[in-house]
């Protein structure tokens, strides 16, 4: 009689009550496939809320193992998971939260060789990577494949987020054409990061993904959202698609995937304020 099981009706009742979701929207979430790249500070809350929301298929990419120093912000993992692959503890945590979600894990490092295969079967990509090389790679791949990407970065007490809808708004390179030189932006390892900012920004990423899937509201495409946790202030900066963008512009110069060699100075987490060279923030 109902398009959902009794268990699903109860579990998702607070979604179904919402005018913008209903049973129709909940079905869209169930049919959706979201890939979360990185099971760290941002990927943890993003994946948790996406699993709780009933996303049908949740892919998790991470080649790392859990370190004790991760646990201050990477809430998918437990103390007893230290030393285990992050994708395994992520799988356990997400399945325990919602056994109705199909969690697919990829214990791989994102590279030019595998990124296209990884994103191909997914509807929305959530960027929770911890370095600029992978961040640019993911941006370029999503632009080339036409996949919506929800990008975020955190450092110290700051966070930023932008949603990239290829062809409909700016991509990461429209705003930050090139990665900063190695060592210019410190990593979380060097500069520190307040754990809860990962929760704020990762949760916003989950919200953006859910809005994209439901087709409701206004996404943060063309708007960079900046959060200063110390001041307790959100700020937004408008950004336009750049016709000269090297990857999504009228005459792209980047037509093949690039992996930047940023040596051993790789920031552990993308910088909140983005690379130093900023373009067209209006």
């Amino acid at each position: 009689m109902f398009p959902f099981s009794e268990e699903e009706i109860v579990r998702y009742s607070r979604h179904i009550i919402l005018q913008e979701v209903g049973g129709v929207g909940q079905r869209k979430l169930k049919d959706a496939r979201v890939l979360v790249v990185g099971a760290g500070g941002l990927g943890s809350p993003a994946a948790f809320y996406l699993a709780a929301a009933g996303i049908g298929t949740l892919g998790i990419v991470d080649d790392d193992v859990v370190d004790l120093s991760n646990l201050q912000r990477q809430i998918l993992h437990r103390t007893e998971d230290v030393g285990k692959p992050k994708v395994d503890s992520a799988h356990r945590a997400l399945t325990a939260l919602n056994p109705g979600v199909r969690v697919v894990t990829y214990r791989e490092r994102l590279s030019a060789a595998n990124v296209m295969d990884l994103i191909r079967d997914y509807d929305v990509i959530v960027d929770g990577v911890d370095n600029f090389s992978t961040r640019y790679l993911l941006n370029d791949a999503c632009v080339m494949a036409g996949k919506p990407l929800v990008d975020a970065g955190i450092l110290r007490w700051d966070g930023m987020l932008m949603t990239i809808r290829p062809g409909e708004g700016p991509c990461y390179r429209c705003v930050f054409p090139e990665p900063p030189p190695a060592g210019v932006i410190p990593s979380c390892q060097e500069a520190g990061v307040i754990g809860a900012i990962a929760g704020v920004m990762g949760t916003l990423q989950a919200l953006e993904a859910i809005k994209l899937i439901l087709g409701v509201g206004e996404t943060l495409s063309g708007r960079l959202l900046l959060f200063d946790a110390l001041e307790g202030r959100f700020r937004q900066v408008n950004a336009a698609q750049d016709p000269d963008c090297p990857v999504c512009g009228d005459h792209p110069t980047i037509t093949e995937l690039i992996e930047y060699d940023l040596a051993c100075e790789l920031p552990e987490t993308g910088a909140a304020a983005g690379p130093t060279e900023r373009k067209n923030p209006s």
Partner: peptide, 13 residues
């Protein structure tokens, strides 16, 4: 709220 939730699910169809 299941009275409304279930009514809504049926009405949607």
């Amino acid at each position: 709220p299941y009275t409304f939730v279930k009514s809504k699910l049926v009405l949607e169809m």
